[in-house]
Design a protein around this nucleic acid. Sequence first.
DNA 1: TATTATAGCGAACGAACGGTCACTTGTCAA
DNA 2: TTGACAAGTGACCGTTCGTTCGCTATAATA
Lengths: 201, 201
Amino acid sequence: MAKDTKERILTAALDMFSQNGYAGTNIRELAASVGLVKSSTYKHFESKEEIWNALLDEMIAYYGERFGSTEHLPPVPDSLEELVQMTMRLVDFTVHDEKVIKTRKLLTIEQFRDDRARALATKHFLTGLTEMFTRIFSGMMDKGLLRRDDPAMVAFAYTAPISALIHLCDREPEKTGEAIAQAEAFSRHFIKVYGVHGHVG
Amino acid sequence: MAKDTKERILTAALDMFSQNGYAGTNIRELAASVGLVKSSTYKHFESKEEIWNALLDEMIAYYGERFGSTEHLPPVPDSLEELVQMTMRLVDFTVHDEKVIKTRKLLTIEQFRDDRARALATKHFLTGLTEMFTRIFSGMMDKGLLRRDDPAMVAFAYTAPISALIHLCDREPEKTGEAIAQAEAFSRHFIKVYGVHGHVG
DNA sequence: TATTATAGCGAACGAACGGTCACTTGTCAA
DNA sequence: TTGACAAGTGACCGTTCGTTCGCTATAATA
């Protein structure tokens, strides 16, 4: 039950830090949201900062196991349409999963204050997606599905606009539907421009 | 001199809010950084929140006069190379101008807490640049410099990656040189893909 | 059963917060 | 020369912050 409480505190911390920031979050409310009184928090963490560090540890570990290993790489699509579908599944997940949303918001808010948050933000918002799609596009070029070009540059050109739309969903959740539609429109625009057509799917 | 002090307080507020956030900034330090004692601040503003609101007012006004009016639109380039040059001038300014950097950082940090910051963030990070380049690309398509396509979609495909690199500069200023180089590389990649070549510049 | 560690609690701590107020100083108009 | 006002000061206010401490209840261990 101790382990359980500790986990629940971290979950609440992600909630509040991602909404109000580290400085804007107070332990009293945080404890209350897991049904504790503030002093009880200190049975599980030595300080507010330790909660922050533990949360970042968890986020870094989660990112590592989810995007760091090659086994979680999506398979190289066999058609341009499949690329669109795969992209949209990815977008759909990433703009609807609460934990992922809160993680992004927290990194957005705290990236200028904490160096580990800064580094993780760059991975989350830029290099992570780009590297993943660099491999995918490299494979698709080999298959003759995409025009031969620098796969890293093409991946950057593909993922950055999608990233921008994901950020828009975080900022203005009521526009999520709109943003998803635009992501799909962009994906279809992309395959029109970069894809090799007349291909037998 | 009163007007002067008020302005200096706002400048200091932009400094501190953009670095530590609204909640992480205290009036004592803010006042000290303009050579005042905290109580003197209240001769110019009624409260911390009023400072925040005045700062946002200023940012909104500045954005309006700088990007809102059509007179500040850059002219439609006469060649693809000119598009690259114009883009790089814009990038260079936007990643080096201190006030603009701090404005972006502040909007990044506070976009989830304040509705006006939220709206302004979307303009700054997404729609503003896109709309500007929609007009430019529309003109370039008319001139036969770019392949005919939906100018808004092409503008989005062009500006989103550049925006991502600008954010990278804000987050990791030591990578600014690298990011600028990548912006230019991307811009050249873009004109290679979307441009009409064999054109007499 | 007696012992001990754990996890909760309420009260209290000093420090820092945003904000107020009476007071002084300097400036400028009447 | 005087009066009014704007701008700055330091002392102080109540509140909230993160943190500590002594206590209790529970549950596992010996």
